[in-house]
Write a protein that binds this DNA or RNA. Sequence first.
DNA 1: TTGTATGCGTTATCAG
DNA 2: CTGATAACGCATACAA
Lengths: 329, 329
Amino acid sequence: MVSIKDIAKHAGVSISTVSYALNGNPKVTEETRKRILAVANELNYVPNAAARTLKKRETRIIGTFLTTFEGSFYGGLLQGMKEIMNKLGYDLVICSGTQSHRMLSEGMLDGAIILDREFSDDELIQHANRGHKLVVLDRELSHENVVQVLLDNKAGATFAMEYLISQGHKKLYAVTGPEGTFDSEQRLAAARQTVERSGLNITYKEIPGNFDKKSGFAAAAQIIAEYDGPAGVFCLNDEMAIGMYDALKETPYRIGEHVHVVGFDHIDIADYVQPRLATVDYSERRWGAVAAEQLIKLIGGKGTAEHERIYVSLITGDSVRPANVNIDG
Amino acid sequence: MVSIKDIAKHAGVSISTVSYALNGNPKVTEETRKRILAVANELNYVPNAAARTLKKRETRIIGTFLTTFEGSFYGGLLQGMKEIMNKLGYDLVICSGTQSHRMLSEGMLDGAIILDREFSDDELIQHANRGHKLVVLDRELSHENVVQVLLDNKAGATFAMEYLISQGHKKLYAVTGPEGTFDSEQRLAAARQTVERSGLNITYKEIPGNFDKKSGFAAAAQIIAEYDGPAGVFCLNDEMAIGMYDALKETPYRIGEHVHVVGFDHIDIADYVQPRLATVDYSERRWGAVAAEQLIKLIGGKGTAEHERIYVSLITGDSVRPANVNIDG
DNA sequence: TTGTATGCGTTATCAG
DNA sequence: CTGATAACGCATACAA
């Protein structure tokens, strides 16, 4: 490995001069700077990140933590983050799994964006207490080193339920996410509230789900078992809605006819299933970009980083049709 | 920040004893070890990665480089890698963008897996020359520090073309990937060869594509413009095939009737489009796992890491039907 | 404008 | 079994 010491030797200067030259410090003549750069180039010099970090106590690397790499929501989100980070001179790496949490505590990261239920609130607070800067995308957490950038779950769930109700559905279901997860709780609360506030005589039931296809599949079975007329179903995410499509395919019941479904997330597949899935949409890219901006602000310490909310909108689709239309004619 | 020096002070021992204790070196009594660990815990000690790395010249972190985070093929691939790496005591981070290449050269990574056309062969060779260990998933590259783990593109493309031919199609198209990309070139070569070897009187044409939806959409336009009977199309990846579906939706032509399509990759959507897309399948998970294994072998220097091939298989679907059946009856 | 000296937190070698 | 001490490569305050 070639270090600045080697460069110094070859260029006939001291190592501090090399360091200055390499970092563009005006203390060194343009001339010697050029000479030193030439030598560095010739020797194939590459700075050593560990040494620099040890000294400067910063890596200019941000980590985003995901529960899993699987399930394809996050492309736009990460891309949005990356663009902002790169522009601001930071690099982004994506991590997953408890084992990788060490990167945060051991100081390999200048900050982190958390979208990962495997982090407990306690653990996050510990990290924040140690001075690490965090943005959370999946919970509410109050700490001077933490800012929240959250989806407007409440609005989304309200849109979804109001849509079903507006189409005349009186028998409603919600298929939930894993108990205790922030998104699930928030969406559920809003769904209930919407039903109550409607003032209509609505049957409303919740079926426990898990945010995965399988649980949507399972929920469909229950709905069919109880079937006694058109049902409106709010799947708290699209993946479960897709599971429901899969399940109904094997039965005489039809989506948008017997079972009316709204999802949440607007994943790619939603546009391709038959009939097209009604869902709640938001800009992943924007979400990522906002999160990145806030984190960098927090790290820089200048400008107050503030909690942010990401807006959502409803996308209609033929997976929901009026309850009182008799399709069979 | 609390360092081993602080622990030493509090525990009334020297820093080297602390280091030994923390690293489980048997040189230190079980008793003092416990005492030191207790102190460390109490002081909330966390080791400093930069210092350790500077000394040991290893991070136990592997980087996987992707061209983009968008487009959701890679979930299974990354998950497969992660599982193996974690089992072997390594952490995995995902990187994207030229800016992040510095992580490799600056020594923040013990090795890297490359699936990213933004790395030129030259750049990779430079890294390899500096002693960095690499696994390439997207090209052929000979170097003692590089091993290849490649899809069996040739087999896949042959399956796809043979399938179209076996269904009696005589007018064939291939929609290509970006010029110069390994996957595209390999699949194309095999496609041509299959046509030639068939010994049949087949019209075969190539339409330049870009591995994205848009180019599939565009290719469809050309095929329709020339339409004079059933056409068989091998889209060199599924994404372009989906673009073709989108394009035909706006025309009177039907997939599996006028235009018969085979893709490559078996992405999620392939199972949900109507009619179901015939495609070439492989285990992403296995691909990732094999890549990870080979890289760790290469890093460890023990056992010879060897180039590997990932097998593929054909999944049929109604996007391809016999050419001579008159569906309109 | 350039050089000298020191320390960042670890590991590891060598004496005790 | 434990303690000094020298690196690792770099940045920087201070001296020249």
